[in-house]
Amino acid sequence: MEVALITVGDELLSGDTVNTNANWLAAELSDRGVAVKRILSIPDERAEIAARVREYADDFDAVIVTGGIGSTPDDVTVEAVADAFDREMVVTDLTRESVERRLAAIRERVPDREFDVDVAAEAAVPAGSRPLVTEAGLAPGCVVENVYVMPGIPDELKATFETVGDEFAGDRRSRFLYTVEPESNIIAALAEAAERFDVAVGCYPDREAAHNRLKVTATDDDALDAAAAWLLENANASETPVSRDW
Results as ranks from 00 to 15, higher is better:
1 M>E: 14
2 E>Y: 00
4 A>W: 08
7 T>D: 07
11 E>L: 14
13 L>V: 02
20 T>I: 08
21 N>E: 08
23 N>T: 15
24 W>R: 01
26 A>T: 14
30 S>E: 08
32 R>I: 01
38 R>W: 02
43 P>V: 13
50 A>C: 14
51 A>N: 14
53 V>K: 06
54 R>G: 09
56 Y>V: 02
57 A>I: 06
59 D>A: 14
59 D>C: 01
61 D>L: 03
61 D>V: 00
64 I>A: 14
65 V>G: 01
68 G>C: 01
68 G>S: 06
68 G>Y: 02
72 T>E: 11
74 D>L: 12
74 D>H: 09
78 V>N: 10
79 E>T: 09
80 A>H: 05
81 V>A: 08
82 A>L: 07
86 D>V: 10
90 V>I: 14
95 T>Y: 03
98 S>C: 11
98 S>T: 03
99 V>K: 12
100 E>D: 13
102 R>T: 07
102 R>C: 02
106 I>R: 05
106 I>P: 03
111 P>N: 10
115 F>V: 08
116 D>A: 10
117 V>G: 14
117 V>N: 07
119 V>N: 05
120 A>K: 04
121 A>L: 02
123 A>K: 07
123 A>H: 01
126 P>S: 07
126 P>A: 09
128 G>Y: 12
129 S>A: 13
129 S>F: 13
132 L>E: 09
134 T>D: 13
134 T>Q: 05
136 A>M: 12
136 A>F: 04
140 P>L: 15
141 G>F: 01
145 E>I: 10
149 V>R: 00
151 P>L: 00
152 G>M: 02
156 E>A: 06
157 L>R: 07
165 G>R: 14
165 G>D: 12
169 A>V: 15
171 D>G: 06
172 R>Y: 11
172 R>S: 06
173 R>A: 13
181 E>A: 15
182 P>V: 04
184 S>W: 03
192 E>I: 03
194 A>D: 08
195 E>H: 06
199 V>T: 09
201 V>H: 06
201 V>S: 08
205 P>V: 11
206 D>C: 12
207 R>F: 12
209 A>S: 10
210 A>I: 00
212 N>F: 02
212 N>Y: 07
215 K>D: 13
224 L>F: 03
224 L>Q: 05
227 A>V: 09
228 A>V: 13
228 A>F: 05
230 W>R: 07
231 L>N: 04
234 N>H: 15
237 A>E: 01
237 A>L: 04
237 A>Y: 05
238 S>R: 08
238 S>N: 11
239 E>T: 11
243 S>P: 08
243 S>T: 10
